[in-house]
Design a protein around this nucleic acid. Structure first.
Length: 356
DNA sequence: TTCCGGAAAA
DNA sequence: TTTTCCGGAA
């Protein structure tokens, strides 16, 4: 690396003109970014695109303008508002973190202090420290890894290359405007130094890029071979009873932890029984892909003929499919509440209420 | 269909 | 250190 300060200076000149305008951002050169908004946006942006986050960010900040407001929210409402964003452990950690920050009287202003909070790891702690508190921390996300791998032609495959890329990115971090530098690196990666077909011709630091000089920019960063995903199967039951539908809240730990769901089997063929007696009929199969496996889920629909052993019946008028994670929304899209077998098919004398 | 992307638990 | 956690875009 010839002169890191020249590279960062040229990057900041570009950022001053081309910074993305985002709801949680202060313009280039600005100060006073709200740590709450920076934190909330960064947690939402973990493993999630800017486009997907925008609407959720607006909704959360409308409902809960301050971290104290969020700390006082009901768990179920936060989970319902997060539904559809994925990686639901983030939502549970978000609430735990808000309550910890409220107890502390505000956000810690250092990377170390921030990293001690739930859901805040190396990336998010550095990002909040740099962007909200102007600390000279190095922020390394997927964009920064890619930019550094190309600028310095790092051939080591990820994730083994991570420490090397972090060290190179640290040398690039300037003592002045570290927050803008971090956001400039990420904007460069998101808009120009993209994973496929990078726009090297308009890159503000192309003169310094070793990968471009060797013609291998689009091939970096290299990645370790990924292992194939197994296909698993399971069954989900959507039960109706007198204008109500049977749902449950999944256990906090594990897949889709803490989300609203229809009762289902485990995902490895574990032979769990139906949650209630009913005239179950298969109405289709939905396929859903998780990080490390794909799932074919058989969807059963039926009208209850007895008490449910799992779940709670909620009125269809109060049932909001948007509170479901993607997998359960797919299953729900197959259901036909109005054509579920009519009440006249039910056993006479069976109670229509039940308590789990 | 493949690729992309942070934190926590194991 | 490896594995477990989703949904959107290319």
């Amino acid at each position: 690396m010839r002169d890191p300060l020249v590279i960062s200076a040229e990057l900041l000149v570009w950022y001053d003109r081309h910074a993305r305008v985002l709801p949680w951002r202060v313009p280039p050169g600005g100060t006073g970014a709200d740590p709450y908004r920076v934190w909330l946006s960064e947690v939402m942006l973990q493993q999630t695109t800017v486009a997907a986050v925008k609407a959720y960010f607006e909704r959360f900040t409308l409902l809960w303008p301050t971290v104290q407001d969020l700390a006082g929210a009901e768990d179920a409402q936060v989970m319902a508002e997060w539904a559809g964003l994925g990686y639901y452990a983030r939502a549970r950690n978000l609430l735990a973190c808000a309550r910890a920050v409220a107890d502390l009287g505000g956000f810690p202003a250092t990377r170390e202090g921030l990293a001690a909070l739930p859901g805040i790891g190396p990336y998010t702690s550095a990002a909040i420290a740099a962007i909200a508190f102007d600390q000279p921390e190095t922020v390394v996300d997927g964009n920064v890894e890619r930019v550094a791998a190309r600028l310095f032609a790092v051939e080591t495959p990820l994730p083994a290359a991570k420490p090397e890329l972090t060290a190179l990115a640290a040398r690039l971090t300037p003592p002045q405007r570290p927050g803008d530098h971090a956001q400039a690196m990420m904007d460069l990666g998101a808009t120009i130094c993209t994973p496929r077909s990078p726009a090297c011709g308009i890159c503000p630091v192309m003169a310094h890029c070793e990968a471009r000089a060797s013609g291998i920019a689009a091939d970096l960063p290299r990645k370790a071979a990924k292992k194939p995903k197994p296909l698993r199967q399971g069954t989900v039951w959507i039960g109706f009873d007198a204008g109500r539908v049977l749902v449950e809240t999944r256990p906090d730990k594990g897949l889709l932890g803490g989300t609203l769901a229809f009762p289902s089997t485990g995902w490895d063929g574990s032979a769990l029984a139906a949650p209630a007696p009913a005239d179950w009929q298969e109405i289709g199969i939905v396929r859903h892909v998780f990080t490390h496996f794909a799932l074919d889920l058989a969807v059963m629909q039926g009208r209850l003929t007895g008490n449910a052993e799992r779940g709670t019946l909620v009125a269809l008028d109060d049932f909001r499919p948007t509170a479901l994670p993607g997998l359960m929304r797919k299953a729900w899209s197959l259901a036909r509440p109005e054509t579920a077998s009519p009440a006249t098919m039910r056993h006479a004398g069976k109670p229509s209420t039940n308590t789990p």
